Computed example of a mutant assay.
Amino acid sequence: MEGLVLFNALVTRLLFLLHSLVGVWRVAVVMKESRYWLLALLNLLLVLETALTLKLKRGRGYKWFSPAIFLYLISIVPPLWLLEMHRKTQDCSIQSERMSQNTSRKDDFKQSLMFNEETKGVEDIIETAKVFVNNLSTVCEKYWTLGLHQTFLLMLIIGRWLLPIGGTITRDQLSELLLMFVGTAADILEFTSETLDLENVRNNTPLVCAILVIWTWSMLQFPLDLAVQQVVCPSSVTARGFPSLFFCQYSSDLWNIGISIFIQDGPFLTVRLILMTHFSVINQMLVFFAVKNLLVVLLHLYRLAVLASAFRASRRRQSEGLKAEHGCPCGPPQSGPGTGEGTVRVGLAMPLQTSPASSDASEPTP
């Protein structure tokens, strides 16, 4: 079992590293400058984290946070930024001529594959790989960038699934988290593909940067596991008042609401409203997803109000129950002729009959 944990931890990080290197390679090819290979140095952080996790944690995950996914974001987001910023001048029709010119390369690729089946030499394999890479370079840049976005989100989901879970998250919580990631990834992919493909957006570089900032901000929810983990409330929290106890009792629900409003649906709604009002970009899909984001935000606010109301009601019932337990069932003593001096005298006479002094005095004197 320990070996399987180490294997999953190592393989997942190697997949992250490989995908990041593909993104860096694509940037170097598009920009036609070898200096962009320096972006690969960002993967050194992931390599260092891998070594520390395998040595100190034996491949196990951390509490509430995944450093591997966070460092993977650091290594893959800059190449995607550069590709999106460069794509404003790209057109698939421009590359159609290049694809027609490379028809002979494809024929050479097929011939090399047939020859490789016969010889299976190392040099032939290397030559086949070079031809394959050259043919990949003829793919339209728009489709390359979209493919990197899609595989990036898939790697986040599959990688989180393969990564060994820590001691604070159960398999049931992990499955719930993965289902949330699937829906989140679909929304993020739709947001980038819908907004960045608009011609009015592509011609406005600051607007493209703003959309990419919102996209990067939405990615920060993937390293977090707070949305599915319940916090055990200590006894000291009860004395701090309503906010602390409310946040402690409904921590996972509040994290879900906060992530939706402040990291995903809220910023996405803001961008879409700005596009429709300020830049006059209106189409059917943009309006539909803006309404969808608005409904999600309103439903989360409604859920927050329901949770607060239910919490106040439960606190009120608890306080009333405590008052009923500590209250005296009998009424206060009433003063009157039947309960005055006679009662006091009887109460005073009882201990006199059982006291040692009274018993000695009652014995006859010899």
Rank of each mutant, 00 (worst) to 15 (best):
A349M: 09
S319P: 00
P329E: 05
P329C: 01
E341G: 02
R316V: 07
E341Q: 11
P332V: 01
Q318Y: 09
G331P: 05
T339E: 11
S314F: 01
C328H: 10
G338A: 11
Q334Y: 03
L348E: 12
Q318H: 12
K323C: 01
P329I: 01
T339I: 01
E325W: 02
P333H: 07
L322C: 10
R316M: 08
V346Y: 03
S335Y: 06
C330W: 02
G340F: 02
P356Y: 00
C328K: 09
L352F: 10
G342F: 03
S335K: 03
A349G: 04
E320A: 15
C328G: 07
S319F: 03
K323I: 04
P337C: 05
P329Y: 00
A349W: 03
M350Y: 03
G338F: 13
G340E: 04
V346C: 02
P356A: 11
T339A: 12
P333S: 09
S335P: 02
T339W: 09
K323W: 00
Q353K: 11
R345K: 13
K323A: 11
R317I: 06
L348Y: 01
E325Q: 12
S335E: 11
R315Y: 00
P351K: 06
G340N: 04
E341M: 12
E325P: 00
V346R: 08
P332L: 05
H326L: 14
L348V: 08
G347I: 03
P332R: 02
P351N: 06
R316N: 09
P356R: 11
R316I: 06
P329M: 01
P329F: 01
L322A: 15
G338P: 00
S314V: 06
C330R: 04
Q334K: 12
P333I: 04
L348H: 09
C328F: 12
P351F: 04
C330F: 09
G342L: 12
G340I: 02
P337M: 11
L322W: 09
V346I: 02
Q318M: 12
Q334W: 04
L348N: 12
C328Y: 05
C328Q: 12
R345A: 13
R316P: 00
K323N: 05
G321Y: 04
A349N: 10
E341D: 11
V346L: 10
